[in-house]
Design a protein around this nucleic acid. Structure first.
Length: 282
DNA sequence: ATCCAGGAAAACG
DNA sequence: CGTTTTCATGGA
């Protein structure tokens, strides 16, 4: 079975990377193996100290998907400013941002609004099981995430079985809006962050938060700083203490937070965001 | 029962 | 224009 031995100077934690809430299609079995579906591959992977053992994809794919080529020490050093983020970096050593398939990431974060992580995972699994291509792996059947045309032609009853709630029409309309998956992906990738963000927000069900997540997790726009209720709470408590206490996050407040973060943490503020988010319960 | 969760659209002043 | 209300789902 293929093995990767990451550079000892380049930390990587498979557990933190897969469980921090950036990606929704992985599960860890009690025997220590993680199983996930990426594109049309079922991947099985585990980490024992520094040794990464996997099956289902070539090592070039694994390295790219988990950003093992990135100089993580240099990245965390760039935003290691102040005790709070420093503690988050220490608590989540080896957390790396995954390079997710863009179309699946887009739909995932449309399904993520006003929900918790177990609920999001269930919705994505439902969509894949209903519309995705079955993939056999070790006596079990997994499902690829369906392409945009499969979802665009989905009939409403089948989609409502996926328990998306009020997000169903958003998924459907977005699937219909995107006529060519690769063309869409290339056009977003070619734009600078702010423009790409504006383009994404034209899609139904994609607001500031979802757009920032897609840009960060699928397009490697590391200046994106998604603000959810957790991040807002953390930023208000530890960084911008003048922010108000009212319940709903206004557009003005979202922009204030993300621009502060861009200035304070620098060009990798999106990476910093993920460390803050992953360490939120500490 | 009430509140909450990787929010965003629609309705309202 | 900015602000408030509504939306569906399940766990705590």
């Amino acid at each position: 079975m293929p093995v990767i031995l990451p550079d000892a100077d380049q930390p990587f934690s498979l557990d933190i990377t897969l469980s921090c809430g950036q990606v929704f299609r992985w599960d860890k079995k009690p025997d220590g193996w993680w199983y996930g579906v990426v594109g049309s591959r079922v991947i099985k992977i585990r980490q024992d100290s520094a040794i990464l053992t996997f099956e289902g994809a070539p090592s070039t794919f694994i390295r790219h998907y988990f950003s093992l080529d990135a100089d993580l020490n240099a990245i965390t050093r760039s935003f290691d400013r102040g005790p709070f983020i420093h503690n988050a970096i220490s608590a989540c050593q080896g957390l790396r941002l995954i390079r997710q398939p863009a179309w699946e990431c887009l739909i995932s974060y449309i399904c993520a609004t006003n929900s918790n992580i177990p609920m999001i995972k269930r919705r994505i699994a439902n969509i894949a099981a209903t519309f995705g291509k079955p993939l056999e792996f070790e006596t079990e059947t997994y499902h690829a995430f369906p392409d945009h045309s499969s979802l665009a032609s989905a009939c409403t009853p089948a989609l409502s079985e996926c328990k998306l709630g009020y997000r169903s029409p958003y998924v459907l309309e977005t699937a219909c809006d995107i006529t060519d998956e690769k063309e869409w992906q290339d056009s977003i990738a070619s734009l600078p962050y702010e423009q790409a963000r504006s383009e994404l927000m034209k899609l139904q069900g994609v607001g500031p938060k979802a757009a920032d997540c897609v840009l960060l997790f699928a397009f490697q726009k590391y200046e994106a700083f998604p603000v959810d209720v957790w991040i807002r709470r953390i930023m208000r408590t530890h960084y911008i203490k003048t922010l108000s206490n009212d319940t709903s996050l206004t557009g003005w407040e979202y922009d204030t937070i993300r621009r502060f973060a861009r200035r304070h943490f620098g060009e990798f503020c999106g990476y910093a965001q993920e460390y803050l988010y992953a360490a939120r319960l500490d």
